[in-house]
Design a protein around this nucleic acid. Structure first.
Lengths: 148, 148
DNA sequence: CCATTTTCGTCAGATCATCTGACCATTGTC
DNA sequence: GACAATGGTCAGATGATCTGACGAAAATGG
């Protein structure tokens, strides 16, 4: 663009930049560590798998995609060795998607990167401002996250 | 999920909720107003068209997609009457993508919705916290938006 | 307990967004 | 004027996503 030097950006757009930056950092780091076969879409599904496994339908709902899409992505994650499907002992129709060993490695690395990036941001903002930012975002979440 | 009631979420995820919420609100409102043929991908391109028109290559760069993808989306926007392509008077190779009348209508409506949603958020947070949030996000943008 | 309805997941097929690679036309440079 | 750089398109492939239909198991309700 060539104009509007002083435009007041909308709050949602300002929120978008850090989210995008984190995703980019995360995928770059995972790829560098050899996990170069996981796509962002797979990641968004994988990130929602609970400690004891999660049903496909629940993953789909939380990730805001259809269960067909979720199933497709879980197929890929399973083929790549990140997750496995086990029967749900409490429901014969259902299966639980669980993290496999390789999946747990990715999660551990991703958590580490997240903390590093967040530490950079906190260093840039200062502790006080970072804390205020977090508090404000947590309150904003009350009205922006319907799956809270 | 059934566990982790008190998990400390990472800052980027907290940023993601408002961004997603705004996008959802925006597209719902546009669809309700009859602009139901614009997809999010088209919107992300259209949102970057400057007042006097913008080159395809620039749109692609700012939207973080290839120029082929941008061209594809502009084709659709053009077919739907949202934008037009005109020759760039300063460069015979280039063409400027400009908003057409219908595009300007959408932009006006989108701006209105954005302001409404932002006003809701400000009401929820209180003026002071909302101002702190904006200030913190603007500073964070310094290290998270490479296209600033 | 059986019949009906709901829920969980899959199959099939389509569409859309996106990419890589090749290519042409124009521009700018030496 | 030759040649590299830039703006854009064409062609083909892939991946994420959807809608619709379906089978199997579970829950519900006489």
């Amino acid at each position: 663009m060539t104009e509007d030097p002083e435009e007041r950006q909308n709050l949602a757009l300002l929120c978008f930049y850090p989210a995008r930056a984190m995703e980019a950092r995360l995928y770059a780091a995972l790829a560098a560590a050899g996990f170069d076969d996981m796509t962002p879409a797979q990641g968004r599904i994988a990130a929602r798998i609970g400690p004891h496994g999660t049903r496909l339908t629940d993953l789909a709902e939380q990730a805001l995609v259809t269960k067909q899409t979720a199933g497709h992505l879980v197929d890929q994650l399973e083929r790549a060795g990140y997750v496995r499907r086990v029967p749900d002992p409490t429901d014969g129709r259902a299966r639980l998607v669980q993290m496999a060993e390789r999946g747990r490695e990715v999660v551990a690395l991703a958590r580490k990167i997240e903390h590093e990036v967040e530490a950079e941001w906190t260093a840039h903002l200062g502790d006080k401002t970072a804390a205020q930012l977090r508090a404000a975002l947590e309150r904003l979440r009350e009205v922006t996250d319907p799956y809270r």
